[in-house]
Amino acid sequence: MELAKNLPAVAPVVQIVAETEADIAAREMLLDRAMGPGRRRKSSEKLRRGRRPSEGLAFAARNGSGALVGTVRLWDVALGEGGAPALLLGPLAVDPALKHAGIGSALMQHALAEARRLGHRAVLLVGDAPYYGRFGFSAEKTGRLSMPGPYEPQRFLALELVEGALDDAAGTLKATGRRMKPAKLPHAA
């Protein structure tokens, strides 16, 4: 997906593509720069730890030279014990030097369009309501849901991709995504 429209004239042209294994190191460095050292202690991280992103829902934004300048991933969760499936979005991050260039918005629009195309029914996240509200997220349907660990309830937001998907949702989100393969350990000689 090429981006040039609706960005400020000084904004770089970026391409949004599927994330690859080759992006791991650059993504981790970008997340450290954009989110700081406390990023691994967030309650959302508890749902991501040891899991792989939802199939087909991990994206990288690359600048004209191919460098990673943005990232977003969505994760499979259940809406409470034995509850309906949904997605947890995050982290969404953009290189701090390119903040306000429209890259985060483009990543969000792309990720949500793909989630809809793949048949997902709802997306949840913990984030700033003024930013995510423009994509349709609100706390309106998260009142009976919770995150594992500490979080600010007013920042727990949801978007129904299918109307009514969250009507009966209640309980604590549970990770349901594919587990990461264990790293191979070297054999002792």
Results as ranks from 00 to 15, higher is better:
160 E>T: 07
164 G>I: 10
115 A>S: 10
101 A>W: 15
57 L>H: 01
186 P>H: 05
34 A>I: 07
161 L>V: 01
68 L>K: 06
5 K>N: 05
150 P>C: 05
98 L>R: 04
62 R>D: 10
126 V>L: 11
189 A>S: 15
176 T>S: 08
142 T>Q: 04
56 G>I: 11
30 L>R: 06
43 S>P: 06
82 G>F: 03
25 A>P: 05
59 F>S: 04
69 V>H: 05
56 G>T: 03
48 R>C: 09
128 D>R: 07
127 G>I: 06
91 P>S: 10
56 G>P: 03
65 S>H: 14
117 R>K: 14
73 R>Y: 11
162 V>Q: 13
160 E>V: 10
49 R>N: 09
31 L>E: 07
113 A>L: 09
19 E>K: 04
40 R>F: 01
31 L>T: 00
104 G>I: 05
98 L>V: 09
70 G>P: 02
56 G>D: 02
126 V>D: 00
163 E>L: 14
137 F>P: 02
70 G>T: 03
6 N>D: 15
86 A>Q: 09
18 A>H: 12
182 P>M: 01
90 G>W: 02
141 K>P: 04
108 M>F: 09
168 D>S: 14
90 G>P: 02
146 S>Q: 11
186 P>Q: 03
155 R>Y: 05
13 V>I: 11
57 L>Q: 04
44 S>Q: 15
153 P>N: 05
165 A>Y: 01
46 K>I: 04
144 R>L: 15
107 L>H: 14
181 K>S: 08
87 L>W: 11
148 P>K: 06
127 G>S: 04
140 E>C: 01
44 S>Y: 13
85 P>V: 08
135 F>I: 02
49 R>F: 00
118 L>F: 00
9 A>N: 08
168 D>I: 04
91 P>D: 03
10 V>C: 06
189 A>P: 06
1 M>I: 12
27 R>T: 14
133 G>R: 01
98 L>M: 13
58 A>M: 02
105 S>Y: 12
45 E>V: 09
53 P>H: 03
86 A>E: 15
136 G>C: 13
93 A>R: 00
14 V>W: 03
5 K>F: 08
65 S>M: 11
59 F>T: 00
123 V>S: 06
74 L>D: 05
61 A>K: 00
105 S>K: 13
92 L>N: 00
3 L>F: 12
88 L>C: 05
70 G>A: 06
4 A>C: 09
60 A>Y: 07
186 P>A: 05
74 L>P: 02
151 Y>H: 14
160 E>H: 03
102 G>W: 13
38 G>C: 08
158 A>C: 08
127 G>N: 10
161 L>C: 11
133 G>S: 07
187 H>M: 11
7 L>N: 12
49 R>T: 12
178 R>N: 01
177 G>I: 01
72 V>R: 00
173 L>C: 09
66 G>E: 06
183 A>C: 07
167 D>N: 09
54 S>G: 10
112 L>C: 08
51 R>K: 14
93 A>Y: 10
159 L>M: 08
